[in-house]
Design a protein around this nucleic acid. Structure first.
Lengths: 197, 197
DNA sequence: TGACTGACAGATTTCAATATCTGTCAGTCA
DNA sequence: TGACTGACAGATATTGAAATCTGTCAGTCA
């Protein structure tokens, strides 16, 4: 039924399954132990708390998204403005898809974000890092206005909150979101101020 | 103790008081009737439901904010880019102040927003209108890039969600928000793309 | 010996009974 | 006559007792 010595990875997988079935509110570590066919005490030998367990699940889940996004930020000959647009577009799409197709794990992620868990701040730090890299490239090549890439990345992430912050997840069901996100991306890339001014 | 014939305005004021004291979850129309010294049946002669009562309170409350903001959007010789910055800065400040200093009424407003009440969408329409007016002026005068002012206003409002949307209210306690909002405003006004490009 | 169990205390959740609230309306009374 | 009351039905919230859960740890057993 399972690997002989119970390991953290196995527990995380069982927890993911339980979270998908019951959602973050109803899932218990007793459920996880039941799936594994062990006592809940065994689970606590590998994770100090229910919170740590949830965090491990979401960390792994976010890592899978991160890999995908890192590819979108990659320098592959595309000009930085287009790369920034591609990165953000994929970032939004990834969030929207997860929220729609994996609602229980997404709900778990929202709980962690609301509680300011290290997992969600690490995720934000990762996103910032991806944006910062593209922005830095753009500044170096003269495509973007000179300035602190860190602060610029922060501003870009803040300006697109509506499209990636889980507090807005409910709004993502509306079909207008995609068009709205494209308008905001254009605004960020060009600003409202006239080029001629 | 109160005006002779019970009128809607008096009821709204009593409700506002009750909402401030008990918050949107605990306030009841029985409480309102008690404050007015009438039976709750009398309240229902003026308002069809508890929801309508709450909406009337928040509508009046938002109207007071709107007056203030309309002044900030006014054409007073200031160039449109600066007017847009002023309007948004005041809009954010108004929200932050209300959230901090009038938490129960603000919480009531959040409830209406979450329920997609007409009151909160009317408020959004008002904000959009103020922004659209400034943007249209800017386009007419050549300060802003030509385009649909309606869509541009929508993009500006979306890009600043983090600073005015009540779902973000919790974050407004952090002292960094002000600096973050200024960076986003600069981003919106100028974009990331280099002027020389 | 060290992975695992299961009993335990205290915290949290569930559940059903009770109380309160919302919205209606026939009736009072000034 | 028309503003107001208060009793009422059904919906919602509160409460307290019982059940379940979290996290610990002394003890089992392979």
């Amino acid at each position: 039924m399972r690997a002989q010595p119970l390991d953290a990875e196995t527990i995380v997988s069982a927890t993911e399954e339980v979270l998908r079935r019951h959602g973050p509110e109803k899932a218990t570590v007793l459920d996880v132990a039941r799936v594994l066919g062990v006592s809940h005490g065994s689970v606590y030998r590998h994770f100090p708390s229910k919170t740590a367990l949830r965090e491990a699940v979401i960390r792994r889940w976010l890592d899978r998204v991160s890999e995908e996004l890192a590819a979108a930020a990659q320098d592959d000959g595309l000009a930085p403005p287009d790369r920034l647009r591609r990165l953000l577009t994929r970032m939004f799409a990834a969030k929207w898809t997860k929220a729609r197709e994996d609602p229980e794990l997404f709900a778990t992620f929202r709980v962690l974000a609301r509680e300011h868990s290290g997992v969600s701040s690490a995720h934000v730090a990762f996103l910032l890092d991806q944006i910062r890299a593209v922005v830095a490239d753009g500044i170096a090549g003269g495509d973007f206005t000179d300035g602190d890439p860190e602060q610029a990345a922060r501003a870009v992430l803040d300006a697109t909150s509506r499209f990636h912050d889980p507090v807005h997840a409910e709004e993502w069901r509306a079909p207008e979101v995609e068009a709205a996100s494209e308008r905001v991306l254009s605004l960020i890339l060009d600003g409202v101020r006239s080029r001629g001014a």
